[in-house]
């Protein structure tokens, strides 16, 4: 049916989180680079099993938070100190009133950081992406239920349809299937 379509990769299903993690360790040690595991929930220790480091999402969030803080500083201080000096009850209105600006500084830092977190998450995960070749595999729908999958992409330099299939079967993969683009 789908012979004319490009091969995306090979997918294998595993019995449990533990079985998938061992498989991931073996695929990592075999030197593959373009591969991924798909699970219904994050598995503790999987990053290490896949040879991935710590997520660097916190870096953009730090920049976002700093931007929020600076925005609040400018937003509050420029009008209050120069554009529109508001004197209430004859109290001071200069830099000595700085503690009164802290709540809004805090709130805007949090607001900007939260937006940066969510948008960076989407950018780094390349979401939204409503089409992906893995969705062509019928068994894959169970990934959001109780399925544990490992997919090696065809563009991996070590990929070979027969050898990779044999490797996946050897490490306990079931229903090893060729996924088309």
């Amino acid at each position: 049916m789908a012979e004319y379509r490009k091969v995306y990769g090979l997918g294998a299903e595993f019995e449990s989180a533990a079985a998938l993690m061992h498989a991931a360790e073996k695929i990592r040690d075999a030197g593959f680079s373009k591969w991924d595991v798909h699970t219904p929930f994050p598995i503790h220790g999987m990053d290490k099993a896949m040879g991935l480091g710590k997520s660097w999402l916190s870096a953009p969030v730090f920049i976002g938070g700093t931007t929020g803080l600076l925005t609040a500083v400018c937003l509050e201080m420029i009008p209050s100190f120069s554009l529109y000096k508001l004197i209430v009850h004859g109290k001071p209105y200069d830099w000595r009133t700085i503690p009164a600006f802290f709540p809004i500084m805090f709130e805007l830092t949090v607001l900007f950081s939260a937006f940066t977190t969510v948008f960076s998450l989407m950018v780094m995960n390349q979401l939204p992406k409503w089409y992906h070749p893995v969705f062509n595999w019928e068994r894959f729908a169970r990934v959001t239920d109780d399925g544990f999958f490992l997919v090696i992409e065809a563009r991996d330099p070590k990929f070979s349809e027969t050898k990779t299939r044999a490797l996946l079967e050897e490490i306990g993969g079931q229903h090893v299937t060729l996924i088309h683009d």
Partner: peptide
């Protein structure tokens, strides 16, 4: 959003969740 539960996604997702929790606490 086309979520497919890949571990390369979960890795960032867990960090995002942790950061949002850390921001929401104060």
């Amino acid at each position: 959003l086309g979520w497919r539960g890949s571990n390369r996604q979960w890795r960032h997702y867990e960090m995002a969740y942790l950061l949002l929790a850390g921001l929401s606490t104060p």
